[in-house]
Simulated assay, not measured.
Amino acid sequence: MDLLALADFNLVARHGGFGKAARASGRPKATLSRRVTELEAALELRLFERGARSLKLTEEGRALYERTAALLTELDETATAIASGAEKPRGRLRISAPLLLSQTAMGKIAARFALKYPEVRLEITTEDRAVDMIEEGYDLVIRVNPDPDEALVGRAFLRDRLVVVASPDLARPAPGHLAPGVVRGTSAQQTWTVMSSKGPAKIKIQPVLALSSLIMVRDAVRAGVGVARLPISLVSHDLAEGTLLHWGDIEGSEIALWALYPSRRLLSARVSAFLEFLKQAFPNGTPDELAAYIGR
């Protein structure tokens, strides 16, 4: 495949037309059109639907663009780095991170990373959903207990677990009785299995509050309105100070945070730098290390 023709195809696809691509790059419009036509002939595929006033990617064209755009960028950056004598992290780095980690730690991590690597334009968005990295243009995603994905590789850099906590003013109910609960999401009645020094026990929960953020849940539990399931990292300072009491660990509630990236891409210097930065921020990957970012 002609890489120059592929690069011209990506240029036209990115700008949405031959004229716009020509103005942006300073290349002749006729040259870009010829290159794309030659690429279509070589692949025996139509990559664009050409209208009188519009140009639209075909399904095959979109698939080719999504799979090659980032790769061409990485090749260009690698060539530039080699020419300059060292591969220094630079350029745009887009990361998707879950809500709780973003609220508690990512601001500090991002600031320290930006100070260390001033040539990297770091962009972090908060998403609890599983974003499509290629479609949405992310270089790295952080996910909680992700499902296996053949298109992604990565590593777990942090581990946590869920515990049941309550205010000291809230009495623990007798077996079989309902405890007022602060929950995330559904407000339906629930039963939680907790592990304690006496073994497993069940706690029946009648939600009195349903909130969308674990920070909100923690603050409501601190106010004494009910019991809640929360990551140990989020409440470890409260437990140490006695402002919250530990009713037990949720059975089978281990949490792992993974940093993932597409396996079919070259791993850029900026992604490698951020992965190493996470490793330095959480060298042992323990809840206590995350709690240190959260503070009181």
Rank of each mutant, 00 (worst) to 15 (best):
E123I: 15
I124A: 02
T126W: 01
T126F: 11
E127G: 00
E127K: 07
D128F: 06
V131K: 02
D132W: 00
I134T: 10
E136F: 14
Y138E: 08
I142Q: 08
R143S: 11
R143W: 00
N145E: 09
N145Y: 03
P146M: 01
D147Q: 14
D149I: 01
E150T: 02
E150N: 00
E150L: 11
E150W: 00
L152I: 11
L152S: 02
L152V: 03
A156E: 03
F157G: 02
L158M: 06
L158T: 04
D160I: 08
D160Y: 02
L162S: 14
L162W: 14
V163C: 04
V163G: 03
A166W: 09
S167P: 14
S167C: 14
D169A: 15
R172Y: 10
R172D: 00
P173Q: 00
P173I: 02
A174I: 07
A174T: 13
G176Q: 01
L178Y: 10
P180M: 05
P180V: 01
G181A: 15
G181W: 06
G181M: 03
V183C: 12
T186L: 05
T186I: 08
S187M: 12
A188K: 15
Q189D: 14
Q190I: 04
T191V: 15
W192R: 12
S197H: 13
S197C: 04
A201Y: 13
K202I: 00
K202W: 00
K202S: 12
I203F: 01
I205L: 12
V208W: 00
L209M: 13
A210V: 06
L211N: 05
S213F: 04
M216T: 15
V217K: 12
